[in-house]
């Protein structure tokens, strides 16, 4: 199995084999974390530009650490402090970055499809770090990695995704990844926040967590994105919490070994209560750690040359 792609734009177009190769490679990357020297020379001399048009802490830091542990040079650009603020188009910005010698451009953009728009215009590898309401492939990959690490497999597991599915790129990438690897996916949330045609993706939709909780092996709690709630799709945060907030009492009927996940940042007291977020079933901090390993794997696999016949 070889990885022959230039870019990582989403999970929708990856095969199950490609996803598994990334997850297996990430296992070896995670092994590096236990060494006293945590850095390897693999990407020495390569440049990774991290171009974010939206605020972010964990994803940006995670990519930066991943690149640095592989010995790549990193440059951070945020839209507010760059020529983007002067009105430069995204294509001109990335062409400039390419001309400056970037081997990778890690991009986050509020518009769905932005990474795809630039990917065939430049030769640098593009990694989608979240585009609008479309995909966030590395988050889904680290979620898959974390589930596999905890449960030993993905196939056959029942995974619930709770919250604002409509606006969530994390949910979309997760659904594609989980389905490709053979999991059963359940979407749970208020009807206003679940796309009407969601079931065409091969998932089951529930409007009450209570109706499905006892069957789930994994629950992935999405952040209620307050910045995307201007259309009055929720009466109030309190009401969302009272019906969908994941609390200990709501988990009473859940399996003892239910795995609790959250992509962060958490709104404690809204989509999840503190006792749940801090319980022994929660792997939220492990997800963060795994994010670095998975992003290292992605950089490694995209960086390889194309010539097979060298001993």
């Amino acid at each position: 199995m070889r990885f022959e792609r230039k870019d990582l734009l989403g999970l929708e177009n990856l095969t199950a084999d490609e996803i598994n190769l990334i997850l297996e490679t990430a296992v070896s990357m995670k092994e590096l974390f236990t060494r006293s020297v945590k850095k390897v020379p693999t990407l020495r001399g390569k440049t990774v530009v991290i171009l974010f048009y939206e605020p972010s802490t964990r994803t940006r830091v995670s990519f930066e650490l991943a690149a640095k542990r592989l010995s790549a040079d990193t440059v951070n650009i945020s839209s507010s402090s760059s020529s983007v603020a002067k009105g430069e188009s995204i294509i001109d910005t990335v062409k400039t970055i390419e001309a400056l010698g970037a081997d990778f451009i890690v991009i986050r953009h509020p518009s769905s499809g932005a990474p795809h728009l630039i990917s065939n215009r430049i030769s640098s590898s593009i990694i989608n770090a979240g585009d609008g309401m479309h995909e966030h492939p590395t988050q889904a990959l680290l979620d898959l990695f974390s589930i596999k690490e905890k449960k030993g497999r993905i196939a056959g597991l029942k995974v619930g995704i709770v919250g604002d599915i409509s606006h969530s790129r994390v949910a979309r990438s997760n659904i594609w990844g989980l389905k490709k690897l053979g999991a059963e996916v359940f979407l749970i949330g208020p009807p206003t926040l679940i796309p009407r045609d969601a079931e065409t993706l091969g998932v089951k939709v529930y409007y009450r967590l209570e109706k499905i909780i006892k069957k789930l092996d994994v629950i992935n709690i999405l952040r209620i994105q307050r910045e995307r709630q201007k259309d009055q799709l929720l009466p109030s945060m309190e009401e969302y919490n009272s019906i969908f907030g994941v609390s200990l009492s709501r988990l009473e009927k859940a399996r003892n070994d239910l795995v609790i996940m959250h992509p962060g940042p958490m709104n404690r007291g809204i989509e999840v209560t503190s006792p749940v977020a801090d319980s022994k079933n929660a792997i939220i901090n492990e997800q963060v750690k795994n994010g670095v390993a998975v992003r290292m794997a992605v950089l490694y696999l995209l960086a390889g040359g194309k010539n097979e016949n060298i001993a």
Binding site: E31, T42, L70, A303, G305, K306, I310
Partner: peptide, 22 residues
Amino acid sequence: LDVSLYRDDFSRRLPRRIKETV
């Protein structure tokens, strides 16, 4: 020892499947 991450021909060939160093 899995030396994949330390090879000098890394950028000239497709990456190999790497395994853990133990």
